[in-house]
């Protein structure tokens, strides 16, 4: 069979079907019918006429093809006519209904905690902090002792802890990972440790016994409190938007000295006072400070040569603040209607 006639047949088929599907009313359909199936000037008639130019042995096959196309088109024409008749008035008036919404399709979502952690990794990654992980089942040494939190000391009260029957515990903060990082590597260190922590808190809108923190640690020669200020200010601006302000208040953590609680200006009221910040204009988001030399001693760093800072971000707190979520229990409950909002 002649390749070119064959191609013309297929081309006519494709074009006719396309024209049919874009036909909006009986007049359009009639136009298509006349163009392809018209007795005197239809394109199929032209194709049939072209048969005579083929070698005799090819004519039969080509003729059969054209006839098949003719039948197909006739069927498609009546099918489309029926379709148009069913859909009635609006189509008859011409044009598609662009006001009609699409059918809902299921879409996946990353958990808001995951997204927040990714944002933290992005922002602090840009500041040179590499994410590392640490175990959640920890030893007393890593969770407390090496962090200068003595046994039987009220300082341990703020780190109420789940203990395991085997003598290990569930870490009550991400700081033990600081110790592990420093035990395994010499300075300079610049890491963040995002992860899950546990505390036997009574569950309410702001407390859950399992939540997330992100620890940060930078150690080198000459790392100072002003570096801490700079890194946290840039980090929070990255996470909460340009113009975010930080307020450092002296505080006490056994593993940092000097220590600070860091408040962030409320992104909702820009510091004017609103429900989210309890009218104060500030929200407490971080704990931070210079690494206590006692911690360096515990990991064998030279306390005269190296200084460093550490900070901890409450991930749920940050997410609650970023998205105006008012109940921490929503995060781990995983109601799909919640998950789908992020």
């Amino acid at each position: 069979m002649s390749a070119s006639l064959n191609a013309r047949i297929e081309e006519a088929r494709a074009q006719a079907l396309a024209a049919l599907s874009s036909a909006r009313n009986p007049a359009d359909l009639e136009k298509v019918r006349v163009e392809y199936l018209g007795r005197s000037q239809g394109r199929l008639r032209d194709l049939l006429t072209a048969l005579k130019d083929l070698p005799a042995e090819d004519r039969r096959a080509a003729g059969a093809k054209i006839n098949a196309l003719k039948e197909d088109l006739a069927g498609a024409l009546s099918g489309r006519a029926e379709q148009l008749g069913r859909s009635g008035g609006s189509s008859a008036a011409g044009g598609a209904d662009l006001t009609q919404p699409g059918l809902a399709r299921q879409v996946g979502h990353l958990h808001v905690i995951s997204q927040t952690l990714e944002a933290i990794k992005d922002v602090f990654g840009a500041l040179g902090f590499s994410p590392v992980e640490g175990p959640e089942v920890e030893t007393e040494r890593h969770n407390f002792d090496a962090l200068n939190i003595p046994k039987d000391h009220p300082a341990r009260d703020s780190f109420d802890t789940f203990f395991l029957s085997c003598g290990l515990l569930l870490r009550s903060h991400t700081s033990p990972a600081q110790v592990r990082v420093m035990e395994s590597q010499a300075p300079p260190v610049r890491v963040i440790v995002p992860g899950r922590v546990y505390r036997p808190d009574a569950v309410d809108a702001t407390h859950f016994y399992c939540f997330h923190q992100c620890e940060g640690l930078m150690v080198d020669e000459g790392v100072s409190f002003s570096d801490l200020r700079a890194v946290l200010t840039m980090g929070m601006e990255g996470l909460l938007g340009a113009g975010t302000k930080l307020r450092f208040r002296p505080s006490f953590f056994p593993f940092t000295e000097p220590s600070a609680e860091v408040d962030v200006s409320c992104i909702f009221c820009k510091g004017a006072g609103c429900k989210v910040c309890k009218q104060s204009g500030w929200v407490e988001l971080l704990g931070a400070g210079l690494v206590n030399p006692a911690v360096f001693e515990a990991v064998g760093y030279d306390t005269e040569r190296y200084t460093g800072f550490a900070f901890g971000i409450g991930v749920e707190r940050l997410a609650m603040f970023r998205y105006g979520i008012n109940d921490i229990r929503l995060f781990l409950e995983n109601d799909v209607r919640f998950l789908e909002q992020f």
Binding site: I113, C210, L332
Partner: peptide, 13 residues
Amino acid sequence: AALAFCETVTTSI
């Protein structure tokens, strides 16, 4: 997520 699964974060206890 691209295949329409929602990610969950669940407690370990």
